[in-house]
Design a protein around this nucleic acid. Structure first.
Lengths: 160, 160
DNA sequence: AAAAAATATGTAACCGGTTATATTATTTTG
DNA sequence: CAAAATAATATAACCGGTTACATATTTTTT
């Protein structure tokens, strides 16, 4: 069976994007496992945000890393269970849950940063041949958001 | 809240890959909806494969488009329910289910192809600024598979 | 040719995310 | 200031995929 993915535009692209993502996540997870670090790849961003901002609400995090707020709740609940995050009600607005890194998390940060650094360097390594990839992906995303794929399809469809 | 995703390497990349993919899938789905085509974006590849090969088994499809075989079964079951795919046992090997496009599917193909063509052109449009994106993504995937991310991380970790 | 191993499919349980819905607190408006 | 609208969080139900497990058939080994 020949390799369909290469030759097939749209369908192929989305498959490729997904698999690439999975590969990164999977390998990072394995790396954590082998080093006995009880954190998950998708906590990385939340760690970094909370390090920078001391305490943040669920929605602030959701918006910043662009996932739904139920997803943030699930993630941070797990982080709480592992003792890395705690929360308190914001006294000025009782609706808000302020999320915060625990002491345990702060203490572990330097170690984690060593790992993340290694990850960063490895990624740069992998990207050295495709320098502008990140930029291009960002641009593609913006193009897509502005005058979307759908609208373009309509135009082309009319001209056939 | 500033834009974390841009500045953050690995974590940012995987987020970006996922969202880009979602955007494509979502917009394609919407497009189908508005044109009253009762097919789903992820059927595209299977349609194309079955058009080319007349009849294929579950595992052949799974390998070619690189998803798990239970996923193929779910997809094709839905396609069957919509009357686009049928199957028969391979008489030479009774384990195998041969999947095949129905007459209804064959009749609808020309129409679908017009849509897919428009999609293809739109994608090229979007990629015209980032010419080598597809190639680069493929290369990144290969690099990643060969000497994986994890192994690279180990190396960098030792040098700190 | 019988036993063991491998292959193809199907099903169940799970996973990380989503949207839809509910509840509570705050802000805006008449 | 009461009523309505909005915002923040929490939870439920779902979705598209996965891995783990079960079953039937074929192939290999002895």
């Amino acid at each position: 069976m020949e390799d369909f993915l290469v030759e097939m535009g749209v369908a192929g692209l989305t498959g490729r994007l997904k698999r690439l993502n999975d590969l990164f996540v999977y390998q990072t997870k394995q790396f954590y496992d082998e080093h006995d670090i009880d954190i998950e790849p998708n906590w990385h961003m939340i760690f970094l945000m909370l390090e920078k901002h001391d305490s943040l609400t669920v929605t602030e995090i959701a918006e910043a890393i662009q996932i739904s707020h139920p997803a943030v709740i699930k993630l941070t609940n797990k982080m709480k269970k592992n003792g890395y995050v705690e929360s308190f009600r914001n006294p000025d607005d009782l609706r808000k849950q302020q999320l915060k890194l625990t002491k345990k998390a702060m203490k572990k940060l330097p170690l984690l940063k060593r790992y993340w650094d290694a990850g960063e360097k490895s990624l740069n390594d992998l990207l050295n041949e495709s320098e502008h990839l990140l930029f291009q992906l960002e641009q593609l995303e913006n193009n897509l958001k502005l005058s979307g794929f759908k609208e373009r399809m309509e135009v082309y469809l009319k001209n056939t």
